[in-house]
Amino acid sequence: FSCASGEYLEMKNQVCSKCAEGTYSLGSGIKFDEWDELPAGFSNVATFMDTAVGSAENKADSCNNSSWTPRGNYIESNRDDCTVSLIYAVHLKKSGSVFFEYQYIDNNIFFEFFIQNDQCKEMESTADKWVKLTDNGEWGSHSVTLKSGSNILYWRTTGILMGSKVVKPVLVKNITIEGVAYTSECFACKPGTFSDKPGSSGCQVCPRNTYSEKGAKECTKCKEEMYYSDEGSSVCIERPPCTNKDFFQIHTPCDKEGKTQIMYKWIEPKICREDLPNALTLPPSGERKDCPPCNPGFYNNASSSCTPCPPGT
């Protein structure tokens, strides 16, 4: 028995019903996209792996405080040389999958993802359990098929400390598990998102200069003359006074008189205010200046651009 995406199982009448506005469901899936705290069902286990005699006993106690840490939109791994597993157990009524996004940019930390069954036997689907590195600032994605029955999911990291160098942690977000039979409730849209129709399978991101709180049916506009917001914001931010970092200058091509005009433009989107005390305004454009000389090997033949010198000159 399963419900479609955008629906939940109404336990009393045993029928699938549409999720209300401001909420969503994956039908046969669950999604973890809010990490203000560790969601129910997740746990941390920290150990110290070392083959040197005696060192593991001394180190084991110091790993007690090592854990994955929720950071709002994602969860962050440990930065020390402890081995820490983020664990989630799920029982699937049918075969499914697990999907997550991650940032993993430092090869001084080992990052594994693997699955065990309830007999602690590692599943074949995670034979290649080492997760690939990502480019700096990029989010990669990883997905693995799951068999029906009990699945225990492990995200495991171990740092390798090299002198005083700080290890960059692994970040994980948007963990989605497909294959649960049904969900008995719909999930509220997280702050900065909304769903405006009943029966939604996901929430849309609030556009720029709007915001929303948790479970929103729509986004609320910021008072744009005083506040602004980026896409997916949960609050509006007060516009600061304009500074010289809010605009830039460009030079127009040289004219036949060998002059260029200096033009000033605001950096878009403009978020600052010119009407506040000590705020700068955009300098006037149009000032004409002499064009800089051509680079070595180039000359100006009374045109607006520099031309390479002919061969032999």
Rank of each mutant, 00 (worst) to 15 (best):
P308D: 07
D118H: 13
F113I: 02
S285E: 11
N107M: 10
M11S: 13
R288G: 10
A40I: 11
G149H: 01
I30M: 14
Y104G: 09
K31T: 15
D290F: 11
D196N: 12
T83S: 12
K245S: 13
L86P: 02
M11A: 10
E57F: 08
F32Q: 02
R273G: 04
R239T: 01
P269D: 00
G140I: 08
T23I: 15
T252P: 01
G199Y: 07
S304T: 14
D81Y: 09
D290K: 11
W130D: 00
I75V: 08
F111R: 11
S303L: 12
K59C: 01
N73F: 03
T176E: 14
N108K: 08
D135E: 08
C82G: 02
K214N: 14
A302Y: 15
Q14E: 15
Y104Q: 05
G258T: 01
S2K: 12
K59I: 00
F298M: 11
C272M: 03
P284W: 06
V180Q: 05
S234E: 09
S17Y: 07
S25T: 10
C222K: 03
K270A: 03
I175D: 02
I109R: 02
Q116R: 07
S141L: 15
P207E: 13
N295C: 06
K270I: 03
P269Q: 01
G163R: 14
P310F: 05
F113K: 00
L9C: 04
L92S: 00
Y264G: 03
G22A: 08
P241A: 04
F100Y: 06
L92W: 00
T83V: 12
F194L: 04
G54S: 09
E34W: 09
K221S: 14
V131D: 09
F187H: 10
I267C: 01
T51D: 06
W68K: 03
C186T: 15
Q204Y: 15
Q261D: 13
E185I: 12
V180Y: 09
V98D: 00
I105E: 11
N58S: 05
I177Y: 06
Y102M: 08
F100N: 03
P284G: 07
E257M: 12
D106M: 08
S304W: 10
N64W: 13
P292K: 13
P253N: 05
Y264P: 07
C206R: 05
G192N: 12
K165Q: 03
D246Y: 01
H142P: 04
T23V: 14
L92H: 00
K259I: 03
S233H: 02
F100I: 09
K93H: 12
G286P: 06
Y211H: 10
P296W: 15
S148F: 00
G96D: 00
P240E: 10
E213R: 06
I250H: 02
F99D: 07
E10Y: 14
L133R: 13
N244I: 03
A279P: 00
G179P: 00
N107G: 12
K217I: 01
T158F: 12
M49R: 10
V98S: 00
N174S: 09
E185L: 05
I109S: 01
P253T: 01
N209E: 15
A40R: 15
E287F: 15
E178T: 05
N300C: 13
S62E: 03
C3D: 02
C19G: 01
I177F: 04
E101P: 03
K165I: 09
E124P: 14
L280R: 14
G41R: 10
C186N: 05
